[in-house]
Design a protein around this nucleic acid. Structure first.
Lengths: 196, 196
DNA sequence: GTGTCAAGAACGAACATTCGTTTTACACTG
DNA sequence: CAGTGTAAAACGAATGTTCGTTCTTGACAC
């Protein structure tokens, strides 16, 4: 179909991305063949290669989408008014993470991205950049908690931010791979540790 | 060269496992070809296939070795006499994890294992089992801390164990993928959160 | 000799990607 | 509004490569 609207093109592109996300989440980047993505999208080989010049580009696009989404959510939590107590902020982040641990969630893809970033320097740079932002968001949470007297005045907010940040993927890993405690139980434990 | 000693056979097997670990750590499971492993081991195709009947078996063996090693270390920390305060126990675990974050460390492989466990039900069972043990070790740490009055009497030691457990891979992820704070800084932050 | 082990050539399947062809939506003409 | 040209879009068979694995062959200890 020639001379097609921009919306049509964007929709086609999204259709391919959606299919790729399903396949990557189910089988991982490497065990997913282009044929799998093509079949899932219900398109032809040529059509997919019109929109993405390689499988790598598809992987990169998906990885970027996943990280962007998480960044937006964390930014909101960090900017919340009034400033959230540490445990509340972590709990909200856990809420988000929890919703991504299912078969259709993004966390399965995030794990794939970690593995990929170990080998792909370009992706590694992007991951580092986004994770630095994540950590900055948590550092903001810590700083505001400190200002509220919720942390000692001499606490290193950057480092505390890093520790808080870690609790979220740590929870998700345990949910996905280790039959870990549910969100409520885990959040209660975090409160036990933070509130004492 | 026939009629070879059992030690020779075990050494050959280990030689292959060592080569595989190097390759898998460098390139990941999927981007490593059997040719890569074979070349790294300095052996022939036939030799390697004498000791491992498939690539999958090689992957599984490596994954199991990695998890076994961590289990042993955590078991020691949990059983330490006298019982370790929470922050000390976590710091010791961080010590271990920190040593595995380098190019030759096992943590890079652990990330690959996570991705693989999402697709391989057999490996998933093994990972779940080992991670349950990990969590049990941390629950032991929490229970002993509780007995020492270091945690509230009504704290859920299993859940607190899960939260403590998470801090270690969380640290390692940040070190490997996100230019996170060094061990000393991170440990101090954990103390800030736990000690107040 | 005989049994064990290693070597590496060979194999078939699966892979990402290319490219020549077909289809189709739209612009333009009268 | 009908007819036609055209270029974009989609198609899918074909390609060349790489992969994991098997198989044949030879070497050496006993």
């Amino acid at each position: 179909m020639p001379r097609v609207s921009d919306e049509h093109l964007a929709a086609r592109r999204q259709q391919i991305l959606d299919a790729a996300r399903v396949c990557f989440s189910r089988d991982g980047f490497h065990a997913t063949s282009m044929q799998d993505v093509i079949a899932e999208a219900g398109l032809s080989v040529g059509a997919v290669y019109r929109y993405f010049k390689s499988k790598q580009e598809l992987v990169t696009s998906i990885a970027e989408d996943v990280l962007e989404g998480a960044d937006a959510v964390l930014g909101e939590i960090a900017a919340h008014e009034p400033p959230l107590p540490l445990a509340d902020a972590v709990e909200r982040a856990l809420d988000f993470a929890d919703g991504q641990t299912g078969p259709d969630g993004l966390f399965r893809i995030a794990i794939q991205v970690w593995g990929e970033a170990l080998r792909d320097p370009e992706l590694a740079v992007f991951v580092k950049d986004r994770y630095s932002r994540f950590r900055q968001h948590y550092a903001t949470i810590a700083r505001r908690a400190q200002e509220a007297g919720d942390l000692p005045p001499d606490a290193d907010v950057e480092a505390v931010g890093a520790a808080l940040f870690g609790m979220v993927p740590a929870y998700a890993i345990q949910r996905v791979l280790a039959d870990g405690p549910d969100k409520k139980t885990y959040a209660a434990a975090v409160r036990t540790l933070l509130m004492r």
